[in-house]
Design a protein around this nucleic acid. Structure first.
Length: 518
RNA sequence: GGCGACGUAGCCAAGUGGCAAGGCGGGGGUCUGCAAAACCCUUAUUCGGCGGUUCAAAUCCGCCCGUCGCCUCCA
């Protein structure tokens, strides 16, 4: 099987074949660093992080580039509003982006180029366009001449005439054609400017992606991705510029994600109907948020609601629980009395008893279980191969989880446990969930109620330890009460802890506690 | 006006020709000192509406209704 993906350029699902054997070059349009991204923005970053990871899982060496737009109208406006320099604004929000991306288990790009550090590359690109007759100077600015690129409109499937018809483009006297776009803006007072052969100014928005993508990934990239709002004009313009300059195809596969909706409408900064990651993290664990963002196919709109987030959190909780069980089985040392094989399978016997003999409960042998794990992995791959169907991929994890909870062997072989654990770890890596299970420490524990703040990380780690110790102490006291049949006291303690979102579970192996949702 | 999506159970959502995934929620059980967790059973004879093609359609075609996005900064 091979990976198939929907290519916006051709409008169909295609087999994915990278230009160079096992190497994939991928460019994803990154954030404009003037504020925190909202959760709708994060959908894009999470989706393409997942694409990247799956391609890596598939054995491709992925070179992933994601830019930071650190000079544009919004950055400049923010700077004026806050009395900072545009540079400081960008610096702050780049740091914020990277911190929040880590929380969502988004891997660092191989290169995170910043527009302001690539002015020379952009000037060079403008010069090539000028030399090729694709650009012209007008009133101190430089424009791309869209009529010089016959294929203009091929990505958005628009005809130049149609675009003109409805466009509410404010007439720019300096443009020869309404669709022409600025590639170099002449200097205006109060704006940052760089020297250029055409005098001081700053780069146009579309130019940076072309220049930086080609600088790090070559004239032709395998995958170029972004939100579907970027199809036109941003990506259309990138194609026009890049292909006019190089004469080569700019990107072979274009991928675009659909929006996150709220109340049926697109979540957006300007509409004010957005949630930031920080807000959601106060109520939901990061992998629940990530699961939610991947619970619909990336090309379909996804409806945001707290209800949906809650559902995702509960679901993730189940997945984490089964992963935890597998891990405890793997780590368990056989100190228990041999007569009691059941390690963490409480309820299993009862379930079997009530099941009667419907056949469903028939025990599988070791070999059959290994095959079952293998078939889950195959299903997972088949769904991901099909244009990254994360919704179905998650369904595979849930199906297997139920079976494991219901009737996994009491004494599985190491090989079987390893196979099950490896599958959940691999799938968890690709989908960006089950972080603790994968051995990656959580950036923070939401249940403790401490917000992640710069400089507080160390202190918070101590708090985690202290709180954990205190809970264990209280749980120990409660267990004493239970042993002496003082259930009134035991229940009171449990109720109080439950009120604090600390869940107690009495099992044959003793009492376990966890934060709600964990 | 041009281009492009979407409408599947209470909610989120997969499925694009062969008897409707998965998650959450609801109902009923098992287990438990009681819980929690887990498991079992159950919860859409039906996929916006009406026609058509087909042995067979949520899936293809046509029309209609409704919602949304892009065409302007926007993930």
């Amino acid at each position: 099987m091979t990976v198939r993906l929907f290519n916006t350029l051709t409008g169909v699902k295609e087999e994915f074949v990278p230009l160079r054997d096992d190497r994939v070059t991928m460019y994803v349009c990154g954030p404009t660093v003037y504020d925190h991204p909202h959760i709708g923005n994060w959908r894009c970053f999470v989706v393409f992080d997942t694409v990247r990871k799956y391609l890596k899982y598939r054995g491709f060496d992925v070179i992933y580039v994601q830019n930071f737009t650190d000079v544009d109208d919004k950055v400049i406006r923010k700077a004026h509003e806050t009395g900072q320099s545009p540079k400081d604004v960008a610096k702050k929000y780049i740091a914020e982006y990277l911190r929040e991306a880590t929380i969502l288990d988004i891997e660092r790009a191989d290169v995170h180029p910043r527009a302001t550090l690539h002015i020379d590359d952009m000037i060079e690109l403008v010069q090539r366009l000028l030399a090729g007759g694709h650009a012209y100077e007008s009133a101190g600015s430089l424009y791309f001449d869209t009529t010089s690129f016959p294929e203009y409109g091929k990505l958005s499937k628009q005809k130049i005439e149609d675009l003109q018809a409805g466009a509410r483009v404010e007439p720019d006297e300096n443009k020869r054609h309404p669709l022409d776009f600025v590639i170099w803006k002449g200097h205006k007072p109060g704006e940052p400017a760089w020297e250029s052969p055409w005098g001081p100014g700053r780069p146009g928005w579309h130019l940076e992606c072309s220049a930086m993508a080609m600088k790090y990934l070559g004239a032709t990239l395998d995958i170029h991705a972004g939100g579907s709002d970027l199809i036109f004009p941003h990506h259309e313009n990138e194609i026009a510029q890049s292909e006019s300059a190089t004469g080569q195809k700019f990107a072979r596969y274009w991928m675009h994600n659909a929006f996150l909706n709220i109340g049926g409408e697109r979540m957006g900064k300007s509409l004010g109907n957005f949630y930031t990651l920080g807000e959601l993290l106060e109520k939901y664990p990061p992998d629940a948020i990530r699961f939610f963002l991947l619970s619909a196919h990336y090309r379909k709109p996804l409806e945001f609601s707290e209800k949906a987030l809650n559902a995702a959190a509960r679901g993730m909780s189940r997945l984490k629980a089964v992963a935890g069980r597998l891990q405890r089985m793997r780590l368990a040392v056989p100190v228990d009395a041999p007569s009691r094989g059941g390690r963490d399978t409480q309820g299993v016997r009862g379930a079997r008893r009530t099941e009667g003999d419907g056949g469903k409960g028939a025990d599988r042998g070791e070999e059959e279980w290994l095959q079952r794990i293998a078939s889950s992995r195959r299903d997972f791959e088949a769904y991901m191969d099909d244009d990254f169907n994360t919704a179905d991929a998650f369904a595979v994890l849930f199906d297997l989880a139920r079976e494991i909870n219901a009737r996994f062997p009491d004494s599985p072989s190491d090989a079987l446990l390893d196979a099950a654990i490896a599958f959940y770890k691999d799938a968890g890596y690709v989908l960006g969930v089950l972080r603790e299970f994968r051995g990656i420490p959580a950036p923070f524990s939401p249940g403790i109620g401490t917000k992640v703040q710069d400089g507080e990380v160390g202190r918070h780690a101590d708090m985690t330890k202290i709180v954990g110790g205190l809970i264990s102490l209280i749980v120990g006291i409660r267990d004493q009460a239970r042993k002496s049949k003082d259930y009134q006291t035991a229940d009171r303690i449990r109720e109080r802890l439950t009120d604090m979102e600390i869940v107690l579970e009495d099992t044959p192996e003793g009492t376990r506690w966890r934060f709600k949702g964990q």
